[in-house]
Amino acid sequence: MATTGTSAHLTAVPPQPRSPAPPPPTATLIGSVQRAVRLLETVAGHAYGAPAKQLARETGLALPTTYHLLRTLVHEGYLRRDKGLFFLGEAAERLSGSGARQKRRSKVVDTLARWRDAIGVPVYYAVYREGEIEVLCVSDTPGNPAVEEWADFRETGHAHAIGQCLLAQLDGAARRDHLSRYPVRPLTPYTVRDDHDLLRRLDRTRRMDLVTERQEYAPGTVCAAIPITVGATAASIALSLPAHQGDRLLPAAQHLQAELGRMLGSFALSISI
């Protein structure tokens, strides 16, 4: 009985090029940057400055390398040289200042979130700076959302508690200057009607009085604002509630005021975030 065989045809596959091995983690580090950073850190540890030879010894760098890096860092403003000693320069101090501001902002964010959760309301932080109302931080939740900014907060300070609170902390000339740029205009049936009425209201408000408004900025919303003054800076912590919870407004604001009073000293340091 004859059998028939089948033969397999093998096709040669060309060898595939190998992917290069990934570089070791340290291969992407730039040695000169590492040395410059080490030098900056060492200079920062000497409040009264240090000479190049001492810096070379403390960093473990060769003296020629140290001189080269010092010249570069002085040229870029990260160091300055005075009578043979090296100190941190203006560029390094700006970096340090930015880090401090970020730390202060983080403290404000964390504090507002804590108050938000403790009282169950959205919490706002605002300042009056260079003639403008600036809402710097808002902390809310899906269950307790912040007021929708349907009309620019900067232009409608006459209508919301934050703006009224900040304007109440200004002198008469600063108030009139603000209103010359952002005149009163009705937003709801409850909004103050004109500049004269607003100025009379502000005159009756003592500088550190709690300020409340009911549906003047947004229908269906009531708000309260607590003044904070540190030096020449006017600031405010505020909260909002739906109008049907209006009976909670004063107790919640008083709770927030008490919380603020307990930590005003440390919170005031964060005014300028």
Score class of each variant (00 low, 15 high):
residue 175 R to I: 12
residue 109 V to C: 01
residue 201 R to S: 03
residue 75 H to R: 12
residue 260 L to K: 07
residue 31 G to N: 07
residue 131 G to A: 09
residue 49 G to H: 03
residue 42 T to H: 03
residue 149 E to A: 15
residue 111 T to Y: 10
residue 173 A to P: 04
residue 242 P to R: 13
residue 198 L to E: 05
residue 188 T to F: 05
residue 54 Q to M: 01
residue 179 L to Y: 10
residue 169 Q to G: 07
residue 76 E to I: 10
residue 117 D to P: 00
residue 251 P to E: 09
residue 9 H to L: 15
residue 108 V to M: 11
residue 250 L to H: 10
residue 113 A to F: 06
residue 44 A to T: 02
residue 87 F to C: 04
residue 1 M to I: 06
residue 235 A to H: 00
residue 1 M to H: 10
residue 71 R to W: 10
residue 22 P to K: 11
residue 157 G to C: 11
residue 10 L to R: 12
residue 14 P to V: 15
residue 211 V to K: 06
residue 6 T to F: 07
residue 22 P to Y: 12
residue 196 H to L: 10
residue 96 S to L: 13
residue 269 L to I: 12
residue 46 H to L: 00
residue 237 I to P: 00
residue 216 E to V: 03
residue 154 R to G: 08
residue 42 T to S: 09
residue 54 Q to F: 03
residue 246 G to W: 00
residue 135 V to S: 07
residue 69 L to P: 00
residue 137 C to D: 09
residue 162 I to C: 02
residue 30 I to K: 11
residue 82 D to W: 02
residue 136 L to T: 12
residue 46 H to S: 05
residue 234 A to K: 06
residue 14 P to R: 15
residue 258 A to V: 07
residue 217 Y to M: 04
residue 41 E to V: 11
residue 45 G to M: 08
residue 96 S to Y: 04
residue 191 T to Y: 02
residue 83 K to S: 12
residue 214 R to Q: 14
residue 88 L to W: 03
residue 164 Q to T: 12
residue 199 L to Q: 09
residue 77 G to Q: 06
residue 135 V to H: 08
residue 40 L to Q: 12
residue 136 L to S: 08
residue 43 V to H: 01
residue 16 Q to W: 03
residue 153 F to A: 08
residue 3 T to P: 05
residue 176 R to S: 13
residue 55 L to E: 08
residue 256 L to V: 06
residue 135 V to L: 15
residue 246 G to R: 00
residue 140 D to Q: 12
residue 104 R to P: 00
residue 260 L to H: 08
residue 106 S to E: 14
residue 105 R to S: 07
residue 127 V to E: 13
residue 71 R to I: 06
residue 146 A to F: 01
residue 96 S to F: 10
residue 147 V to M: 13
residue 216 E to L: 02
residue 192 V to C: 05
residue 56 A to M: 02
residue 213 E to M: 12
residue 152 D to W: 03
residue 104 R to G: 03
residue 250 L to Y: 03
residue 220 G to W: 02
residue 183 P to K: 11
residue 96 S to A: 14
residue 196 H to D: 12
residue 208 M to F: 11
residue 35 R to Q: 15
residue 166 L to Q: 06
residue 32 S to E: 15
residue 157 G to W: 04
residue 216 E to I: 04
residue 106 S to G: 15
residue 239 L to S: 00
residue 141 T to P: 06
residue 3 T to G: 13
residue 79 L to S: 03
residue 16 Q to A: 14
residue 54 Q to N: 09
residue 99 G to K: 14
residue 163 G to P: 06
residue 256 L to Y: 00
residue 150 W to M: 14
residue 257 Q to I: 03
residue 190 Y to L: 13
residue 218 A to F: 07
residue 150 W to C: 13
residue 205 T to H: 08
residue 14 P to F: 14
